Every structure is written in C-alpha cells, then in structure tokens.
Simulated scan of single mutants.
Amino acid sequence: MIVLEKKSGRIHLQLQAIFMGEDVVVLITGGDRPHLGTITAGARLEPLQTIQLQTHKEFYITEEVAVRLRKSFRGNFAICCGAHLDQITKEEIPLLTELAVQLGDELIQKLSTS
C-alpha cells in the first residue's frame, strides 16, 4: 500500500493506493467529511468509466488522475474520490482539485519507479 498526503491551509487530502495483484485501487479523501463521491475505472487500452454518486463533483479529480495514470500504468485501476470542505471558498475549490491531482502525479511517479 502507498499512502500520500497534501496540505494547504484548511485543505488536507490523503491518497491511499491498494494493490490487487497487477491492479490498483486509489482512494483520495479529505476535508471535513470524507465520503465516496465519484469513481472512475479504466485500463491502458479501455475507455474510462465514471460513476458520479448524487451530485458530487469529484469526477474533475478522478478523470484527470485516470487520464494521467493510464499513460504509464499497465494494470486495471479504480479511482475513488470524496473530499468535502465545509463552507469552501471559490479560491479553495481549484486548490483542492490541484492538490488531489498532485497526489495522483506523485503516485504515478512512485509506480513508475517501483
């Protein structure tokens, strides 16, 4: 398992990557109420599939990380994300997204060196 974290101001995100043989499940959670908001699954040569639960908008994160991950990762993957920050500001929304994508990039780097 790989665990990574990013913090900026009130935003605290954690990424956990759990291996299932050659495949990986990635959990990106954080904020005041971690939850399951969006799931994006795919593989290198397969189309991405996203499930958005209720009105959650974490697909901005899961799909961006998935597009990057599929370029170098050979196995199947699922990216689950849910981060809620009470009274999030307009400035914090893109920051939260950027931190989550940075976590995804760090994971990709770790996967390519292992």
Rank of each mutant, 00 (worst) to 15 (best):
D86L: 02
F77S: 12
Q54P: 00
M1L: 10
K57E: 11
Q49A: 13
I2V: 11
V3T: 15
E5N: 11
Q14P: 00
E63S: 05
V65C: 12
I79W: 03
E64P: 09
H56W: 00
A41Y: 08
I79A: 02
G42M: 09
F19Y: 09
A41K: 14
P34D: 03
T29A: 04
L53A: 03
L15S: 07
I28A: 05
G31S: 05
L69A: 09
I18N: 09
V26A: 03
H56R: 01
D86G: 01
L27M: 09
L53G: 00
E58P: 09
Y60T: 12
G37N: 06
H35R: 04
E22D: 15
I28L: 13
F73M: 07
M20N: 14
R44V: 04
V26P: 02
L95M: 02
K6R: 15
F59V: 04
L53R: 02
Q16T: 14
I108Y: 12
I108N: 08
A17Y: 04
G42W: 07
F77V: 10
I108D: 10
R70L: 11
A41M: 14
L85G: 01
Q16K: 13
Q102C: 10
L36Y: 07
S72E: 15
T55L: 10
T50W: 09
A78R: 08
L103H: 11
F59I: 02
H12A: 08
T55I: 06
R74S: 13
T62Q: 10
L48P: 12
R33N: 06
P94K: 05
E58G: 15
A43L: 02
V26I: 15
S114G: 14
I51S: 12
I2F: 13
L95C: 02
E46P: 00
A17R: 07
P94N: 05
G9H: 06
T62H: 12
E46R: 14
L36Q: 08
V101R: 03
L13S: 12
T38W: 00
K90N: 12
K7E: 15
L13Y: 03
D23R: 05
L4M: 06
D23V: 02
T89R: 06
L27F: 14
L111Y: 08
H12T: 06
A66Y: 09
Q52Y: 04
L13T: 10
V67W: 08
A100W: 11
T38G: 01
E92G: 01
K57L: 12
R68I: 08
Q87I: 01
G82T: 00
T38H: 05
K71R: 14
L15M: 07
I51N: 08
R44L: 06
